[in-house]
Design a protein around this nucleic acid. Sequence first.
DNA 1: TCGTTTTTCCTAATTCATAAAATAATTATT
DNA 2: AATAATTATTTTATGAATTAGGAAAAACGA
Lengths: 342, 342
Amino acid sequence: MKRNIYDVARNMNLSPGTISKILNGKGNVSTKTRERVLKYVEEIGFTPNSSARTLKSKKSLTIGIVFSDISNFGLEHPFFSSVLQQFKNYIEIFGYEIVFIVNRVGNYDLSYLKWCLVKNVDGVLIVTGNINKPNIIELVNSEIPTVSTDIKMDDLYSVMSDDFMGMKLGLEFALKLGLRKLACVSGPLTSRAFYERYLAFKEILEENNLTFKEKYFRVSPTYGFTGGYNATKELLEEVKEAPDFIFALSDEIAYGVIRALEDSGLKVPEDVSVIGYDDVSFSKHFTPALTTIRQYKKEIGETAAKRLLALIDGTVKPEKQVELIPVSLVIRDSTKKVNLKQ
Amino acid sequence: MKRNIYDVARNMNLSPGTISKILNGKGNVSTKTRERVLKYVEEIGFTPNSSARTLKSKKSLTIGIVFSDISNFGLEHPFFSSVLQQFKNYIEIFGYEIVFIVNRVGNYDLSYLKWCLVKNVDGVLIVTGNINKPNIIELVNSEIPTVSTDIKMDDLYSVMSDDFMGMKLGLEFALKLGLRKLACVSGPLTSRAFYERYLAFKEILEENNLTFKEKYFRVSPTYGFTGGYNATKELLEEVKEAPDFIFALSDEIAYGVIRALEDSGLKVPEDVSVIGYDDVSFSKHFTPALTTIRQYKKEIGETAAKRLLALIDGTVKPEKQVELIPVSLVIRDSTKKVNLKQ
DNA sequence: TCGTTTTTCCTAATTCATAAAATAATTATT
DNA sequence: AATAATTATTTTATGAATTAGGAAAAACGA
């Protein structure tokens, strides 16, 4: 059952070296023998042992994934798991596979970088991580090609949504609807995405000669329903004038916001318009169907994959350090109708 | 930077073999040298190369995962990705890690089994797969320890929710509420879970002297919102008497069911009570909050992990071929209130 | 003290494939 | 046909660890 390259060589009356060459499509081998061997290999379904290959060649056809550094949600995180899925789909076309970077192997505790070296990963994708963790810093500064879909650092290629654009789309739509009392419920600002959206929110308000009021910008400690609910409740309590617009910085926060508004006797979208962020699959089925900023997870995952594979090949260096993927505004029922306005 | 066991040996004035023994905690080594080496290894942060280890020892500390054989959802599948996450968390404690079984490595197309052999995985978890695929059959019948959280086969250990119990809990609750026109919207019956729930539905109706009517059991081609919506619309059209209860066999189907009912002018729970299945995180925030059968993903993932690790160690053979994890009924607002009945 | 046993450590073989150097075989050139 | 140039194949070394078997050293008994 278990065959190695020597068995093949023996049966073909050739040397292992020749078999290896044929299997890797390199070197000078006559067409006859090549085809003969290829046929045989196909027949018996032989594949060279993966450990031996990476041991000798230092290539593992493997991409290390840094995932759940902030949250414990891991694979359950709706946005990131989707980005990862797309990334995975893409690299698999080229024979690569993903492995999760953990901080131990057998009995050894390891740093991310150590782990990568021990495992000989060809590259690393940081789906989500924390810029301040020494583990991450060490990894990014190493020789190993690395791409991120979440964090930004010097010498790190990043592929992510254009958060400024998202905020701009949302806020300008609100302004077009005639709304002026603009509030925002964000997730934790320790997350890069939320922080940048926060900056954008501020900046865009000022661009439009509206003053940014601290009390209208709420930070929830989570990016889920409950956080959005509580933050909104607090907002409504602490503020004299209820907002007529709330930008919820994740769809799930948006659901919490809407529920809190309803529980406080405010109607969505009649009294308050709400925009979410992400456009997770369920948002169109929610009542009211959620107006939201759509992030293109497939685009992000695939672009990250392309960039990383290019870095590994050493062919083309992506010229942009940070590649922003456009987002779009999906208008549904949680915001006032435009025609009502006109 | 890159060190091997020979470097360590040289610096310690010992042979590579001795270092290896110490690192693996086996064989006869004096306490003095053991501690001296361990201290040094700790200091320089040395870890033996993973490929070389598995090449020689045939152990990879790696579990192969069969995932998206039916759906293309992959990591985005709310239930299975969660089970996988729990599984992963558990095995990582013991130094194992997961790798996704794909059907190629480099330029070679492989069967699942071949892939496992090439990669030397120590065991396999079939999170979800299709019993009829030759790939799966070959894998299950191989020597490689395998556990599943979805499918059942001879010689395959399975850990999964008690579907009969779930259906029983749901239906008996409906009966207790005085409901007698019981309908069901299922996902595709090609999935084991849906099929078994279908059988249970039938059986339990008969146990209670109610006749099973084909028209009241609808099969949606998907397990999502839209499938549930369409199936319910069809149900209502084809049937003279609207049901007073619909058992939706996934939460997402349940959302679709409820929307369809509302669109048809039926109130939930006043006119029709609806029970979902899964208890995904969002079900409690839905309006109306969903009464549903809760599956214990953590329990399933962890138990599967324990069973698989036991099989790998060869210590204890799990005595039960199929281990059923109990489910529970979570009563919320999509079903009639009990006290209204009394 | 000498021989035996046990403990400790080393040597060498093994795992499997790849890469570079060396050799053999074939083709081309004059 | 003889030599040069190419092409095809083999040989050998290498990658980094594990393991079985053997040697040396220490411990033990008489």
